[in-house]
């Protein structure tokens, strides 16, 4: 699948934003919210900023962005529509939670806003993952491990942001670091499992199946219907060589999991004077890692339609 930068940025930025909101909610519920006002101001600003930037970015993928409001109408059948509706609905508890936490308004119900923020943020990320997971045409995505991977990576990147931001402005509690570490390791395990399932899956469809003549044996194209790549090939014919993918998988593991995990350990072990440095390294490394991960998620995914254009199996 063609890795569109707008969609890569949308899923990673909004994922990290929703992940950060989940951790802010948990911090509120557990009484672990950093007391520094600037932290809360910056954390809510960053989380909503990432979500808004992600949602705006997703509209750049549209041919007719001026009609984007239509996309809220078909939540009965479409995961994309559900994701849009939930993304907008999530702003309500987030706004109330932010007003309570940052400006001291509606404080009495702060825990309720926190709970609703956690639920809606997780549901939105789940809907994002279901847009991809529901497509039976793309075997790499039509795997039930995809939603857990999306949620774990949102929590890992959000946790890294939470810790990194705290180190810059406040004293970081060990509980938050451990929580981030658990999310990072969970994401690591799930992503490696995803790749092993991706590599291990059997490709059962052939070009002969695609043209309805499975008895004819091996079918190969001898003449293309068009001289230059058409939309279908440009959008869905994108595949990267396996060797290329292997290297990028290694970069993903190092950037998204190994370096942030080591930073977490350093934050636990070293004096707090070093904390902002490790916090920043973890954020930058995870950002590069998750962008690579998401690029690969698209680039490695093979669409069934490629059978018509020379792929031997899908």
């Amino acid at each position: 699948m063609h890795p569109a930068y707008s969609v890569i940025f949308f899923t990673t930025a909004s994922g990290a934003g929703y992940g950060l909101l989940v951790w802010l909610g948990l911090a509120e519920l557990l009484g672990e919210m950093p007391s520094n006002w600037w932290f809360r101001f910056m954390a809510f600003g960053l989380a909503t900023g990432l979500v808004v930037a992600g949602l705006l970015s997703s509209t750049f993928h549209l041919g007719r962005p001026e009609r984007a409001l239509n996309a809220f109408s078909q939540w009965r059948s479409s995961w994309l529509s559900r994701e849009g509706v939930l993304a907008v609905a999530t702003f309500i508890p987030v706004a109330l939670f932010g007003l309570a936490s940052v400006f001291g308004l509606f404080v009495d119900a702060a825990d309720l806003w926190a709970v609703l923020t956690i639920i809606f943020a997780l549901l939105t990320v789940w809907c994002t993952s279901m847009i991809y997971n529901s497509l039976t045409t793309i075997r790499a995505w039509n795997d039930q491990i995809v939603p857990p991977v999306y949620i774990a990576l949102a929590l890992a990147t959000g946790g890294i942001l939470f810790c990194g931001l705290t180190t810059l402005m406040d004293n970081l509690g060990a509980g938050a670091i451990w929580a981030a570490l658990v999310a990072i390791i969970a994401g690591w395990i799930l992503k490696v499992l995803y790749w092993s399932r991706l590599d291990g899956r059997k490709l059962t469809l052939t070009t002969a199946d695609a043209i309805g003549l499975p008895k004819l044996g091996r079918v190969r194209p001898i003449e293309s219907p068009h001289s230059q790549a058409n939309f279908v090939m440009r959008e869905m014919g994108y595949t990267v060589g396996r060797r290329h993918a292997d290297r990028l998988r290694t970069y993903t593991v190092i950037g998204l999991f190994v370096i942030p995990a080591l930073c977490c350990l350093a934050l636990l072990a070293l004096p707090t004077g070093f904390a902002p440095l490790f916090g920043l390294i973890a954020i930058l490394s995870a950002a590069a890692g998750v962008l690579t991960e998401r690029w690969l998620f698209f680039a490695e995914a093979q669409h069934v339609v490629s059978l018509y254009y020379g792929a031997e199996a899908a």
């Binding site: 043209i211 003549l213 044996g217 079918v219 194209p221 219907p225």
Partner: peptide, 10 residues
């Protein structure tokens, strides 16, 4: 509508 041309069999 796209018309492909394939070779089948051995």
């Amino acid at each position: 509508n796209r018309v492909h041309m394939y070779e089948a069999g051995e």
